[in-house]
């Protein structure tokens, strides 16, 4: 019994369905995955609890949604070394231990890691002397994930529900928002924004968890199959995201969205502002020791 924490029709959920669920079921091997659906099965913020209690066996969820239960997971989007290195240097196992301990879950996959986030704006942003965007005077719709960077860039975070975003944008309640590098077109917002701030920051961290008790009850054969497909999915999702990101940019170009591109030192400065802001937020939630440990493992400052 599996669930995705985003709607099953969401671009990101489809990547999981295509490269994991469908592959497993097509193999007709030791396990079959019964995909129950998206957040209509359990709301995003209750899905981890459902997995922990054994009401779900497999859960695909953006790591950011789990931080109410597992605060360390907030750091997962701050890795900038790539999945191969994460697997190789023990970071993956480190997080696996955390999920086992705090969510009774076996950590099966860390996927879609090549996609990140952009800031989208309806008005052209000002630039500082160093060539970094300056959001002074702009109201940005922000949730937990974007608030640190928006504040660091002098923008005013505005809390409005996601359903109010299109109208808020059209009516000037907000001037922009942050969004993943894929999926803008699928929610139809490309006509409401005019500028995309590049480069992308952070990295998506969508994770696949399996209920620990269930995992232990599976046959070796079944576990091998799941792990093998999960590894392949991690790799395939990288290409998938790159392809979709390009398609989305093409669609946005067609809709007249211009890129505000920072390069060289300006880009580096923008990124370090973004990452440092979020690391500080992580620090506030899990303390200095854990933050330094995680940062040392998964983040390379230039």
């Amino acid at each position: 019994r599996a669930q995705t924490a985003l709607p099953t029709q969401h671009t990101l959920s489809k990547s999981f369905t295509k490269h994991f669920v469908d592959v497993i079921n097509a193999e007709d091997g030791a396990v079959q995955v019964n995909m129950l659906g998206g957040p209509e099965v359990n709301p995003q913020d209750r899905a981890v609890a459902a997995l922990e209690r054994g009401l779900l066996d497999i859960l695909w969820i953006p790591a950011a949604f789990t931080t109410g239960t597992i605060p360390e997971a907030q750091a997962m989007m701050l890795q900038n070394i790539g999945i191969d290195e994460l697997r190789a240097n023990g970071s993956y196992d480190h997080f696996a231990n955390i999920f086992a301990e705090k969510a009774n879950a076996h950590f099966l996959a860390w996927a879609e890691t090549s996609a990140g986030y952009y800031l989208y704006l309806a008005t052209e942003p000002a630039m500082t002397e160093d060539g970094v965007v300056d959001l002074t005077g702009l109201s940005m719709r922000s949730t937990g994930a974007y608030r640190p960077i928006i504040e660091a860039l002098n923008g005013s975070p505005v809390a409005i529900p996601s359903g109010d975003v299109p109208q808020g944008l059209d009516r000037g309640v907000i001037n922009g928002f942050g969004w993943p590098t894929v999926g803008l077109e699928s929610i139809g917002l490309q006509d409401s924004v005019s500028y995309r701030v590049e480069p992308q920051f952070y990295n998506l961290a969508n994770i696949v968890l399996v209920n620990q008790d269930k995992w232990e009850r599976l046959s070796d054969e079944a576990r091998d199959q799941l792990s093998r497909v999960a590894l392949a999915y991690e790799q395939l999702s990288i290409d998938e995201m790159n392809m979709m990101g390009e398609a989305d940019i093409a669609a946005a170009d067609a809709a007249g969205v211009q890129a505000v591109r920072m390069e060289g030192d300006a880009a580096a400065s923008y990124l370090s502002t973004a990452f440092d802001a979020m690391w500080n937020s992580v620090r506030g939630n899990v303390g200095d020791d854990v933050t330094d440990e995680l940062r040392g493992m998964i983040y390379k400052a230039d």
């Binding site: 913020d45 949604f65 931080t67 109410g68 239960t69 605060p71 705090k102 949730t143 937990g144 809390a159």
Partner: peptide, 14 residues
Amino acid sequence: ARGHFDQRSVDMPY
């Protein structure tokens, strides 16, 4: 006991 949080526009204790 486990210090869970409810993530909203600001974090609330669960």
